[in-house]
Nucleic acid binder design. Structure first.
Lengths: 201, 201
DNA sequence: AGGCTAAGTTAGTTGTCCTAATCAGTTAAT
DNA sequence: ATTAACTGATTAGGACAACTAACTTAGCCT
């Protein structure tokens, strides 16, 4: 049998493999925490994720095509979920002004209530992270954000909203800089999901 | 609307929140990479995960009850998946000697072939991690393993196979030590999934 | 022996997620 | 300006994941 990061007997030899295995465990945490909230609210994981995403992102990102890209599923999958959420009266459709085939999704009051109840599903994880010192958190974040940037560069993550891929981002003499805020960026200022993101040419 | 790690406008203020958001992105990578392999092999993500797990773990962990705990799903879910995998002739059932209600699952030759083809699904992620220096990887792993240990202590992750929770593990004067290997453990020696793991009393 | 617990299955339901096909509107190109 | 190509969204059909509830059978315990 080939080597693999999931082979405990081989895993030990490779540090990067052990990091992958650690990430896998943390992924499982997301799954578990999300399901917990899902059961409480009578919704499915993807339904909750959609509601949370819609709550915190502008209308230009809240249509079927973009949501499909965002969650790495096909459009019919999003279309199905939206049908259900509409039926449950948690979201509303607003026709697009520029394209009559398209529409934007917004939350209803009931939808906002659900978001308030569920958006904190990652809190138990956050609590453990807070146990690390600020210095540790800073280096951890710096390493994670560099991994994520690479993943985006390599098309493994399709959605781009980090500073590194933004048109307002520049890096001179190792110093990251945001041309929109017109200020240098420390490691901890780098954003994973920047509201002002605009893709670079 | 309440604060949330998924709110890009608020996210910036909290370092731990940004780390959570980063973990969320990396979780998505697992999902994407696994689906890719799934489509190629004509199996579903959970089916592949089951096969990989069975390939690298002893018979005592390869029964319905444990697999359900391992993947944080109910027994019927595992039972269903096993039915399908058996039907596809990728696994075999071996009756348990100690308990006639139970059985152990093993891979068929066809199952092993699939594992060889799919177990490397995390490779693109591993490749990015390898771009970090060994020092960076060491501190990253140390921080990840401490987070994971805390998550297990707090029952958020139900399955325990890290050194920290093992009966053979001890820590004297900040020096981790394995009483089975009878040797001190450096940060990079800590195991996330140790084959010799035995729960401490 | 009787009652509790545990291993696994079955039945029934809801919803995810896919592919393929369809419809309608937008854009580009001759 | 009209056709061709593309794109946004939906529908249809199917495999399967995930749940709960109820059941069967076997082990355990006092």
């Amino acid at each position: 049998m080939k080597n693999s990061v999931f082979n405990p007997s081989q895993q030990q030899k490779s540090l990067s493999g052990k990091i992958v295995a650690s990430f896998e465990r943390i992924s499982e945490v997301f799954k578990v925490l999300l399901w917990e909230k899902a059961k409480l609210s009578g919704l499915s994981p993807i339904q909750i994720q959609l509601l949370i995403f819609i709550a915190y992102h502008g209308p230009e990102l809240c249509n079927v095509s973009h949501l499909a890209k965002e969650f790495n599923v096909t459009k019919p999958t999003i279309s199905d979920a939206i049908k259900i959420l509409t039926h449950k009266a948690l979201i509303e459709k607003f026709p697009s002004v520029s394209d009559s085939r398209s529409y934007t999704i917004g939350l209803t009051e009931a939808g906002k209530t659900i978001v308030n109840e569920t958006a904190g599903f990652t809190q138990p994880l956050e609590k453990q992270i807070e146990k690390l010192s600020i210095t540790e958190q800073t280096t951890l974040f710096s390493q994670l954000s560099s991994i994520i940037f690479e993943l985006q560069q390599n098309q493994i993550l399709s959605v781009q909203r980090t500073c590194y891929g933004c048109r307002y981002f520049s890096q001179q003499n190792e110093q990251p800089f945001c041309k929109l805020l017109n200020s240098p960026l420390a490691q901890q200022d780098i954003r994973i999901d920047c509201p002002e993101f605009e893709a670079s040419a």
